[in-house]
């Protein structure tokens, strides 16, 4: 069973909730190795998206929702997360196209497009201790699940599991991108806040999917 507009809207609401709930934790992670604004900025961005959901035209698609998130994050999030997540949602929206229902393969393709957008924008590679270290395992797990015939809900669950593991695995890494790279070896032992927020957002996507499909 595919994921439709109801899932997309629910994902955004859940994203806003989970980011608000983990705002302080993300701020703390970012303060350890960055400038401390990640939780604040993402919370502002997602909080700004929620009221706009009510203005979506009838017949809107998941792609329309992703685009709405992209534009709102780009214009309201003042830190690096704005352009990075904004680009991710924008590329995801393009990959979703005008389809009204997304199956497992479509979800895997959308996640890959989002990750590719972040790489193109931020030029980070795996192992640089960035959100890519959560995204790439998620994309790989989603592709493997979709290839084995999993439905959209199972694909998102696999992606969320892999993103969480990826976020934890950033802890021993030395940061090579972003503000944390100024700390060099001192960044070791801290989890990357962008990888952590990625894990939270993908878990919200998976939760919204299992809710909407009753899985």
């Amino acid at each position: 069973m595919g994921l439709d507009i109801t899932w997309a809207v629910d994902w955004v609401r859940r994203s806003a909730d989970v980011i608000a709930e983990h705002r302080v934790e993300l701020i703390r992670l970012d303060r350890d190795i960055g400038d401390g604004d990640h939780g604040e900025n993402l919370d502002r961005g997602f909080t700004a998206v929620v009221p706009k959901l009510d203005d979506l035209a009838a017949g809107s698609t998941p792609g329309d929702v992703l685009k709405l998130v992209a534009m709102t994050l780009i214009s309201t999030v003042g830190g690096a997360a704005g352009p990075l997540y904004g680009t991710a949602y924008l590329k995801a929206a393009a990959a979703a196209g005008s389809e009204s229902s997304l199956d497992g393969e479509a979800v895997a393709r959308i996640l890959a497009a989002a990750r590719d957008g972040i790489v193109a924008r931020g030029k980070a590679e795996s192992g640089d201790k960035t959100m890519i270290d959560a995204w790439t395992p998620a994309v790989d797990a989603a592709a493997a699940a979709a290839a084995s015939g999993a439905d959209a809900t199972a694909v998102l669950a696999a992606a969320a599991d892999a993103a969480e593991a990826g976020a934890v695995a950033t802890e021993p890494l030395v940061a090579r991108k972003g503000r944390a790279s100024y700390l060099g070896e001192r960044s070791v032992g801290h989890r990357d806040p962008g990888a952590q927020s990625t894990a939270l957002l993908l878990r919200a996507a998976a939760d919204a999917a299992s809710e909407s499909t009753g899985a």
């Binding site: 690096a80 352009p83 990075l84 503000r179």
Partner: peptide, 14 residues
């Protein structure tokens, strides 16, 4: 100046 200024500008150019 610092990193995200470039990211924001590149996004604006897009």
């Amino acid at each position: 100046d610092l990193g995200s200024a470039i990211l924001t500008t590149e996004t604006a150019l897009d």
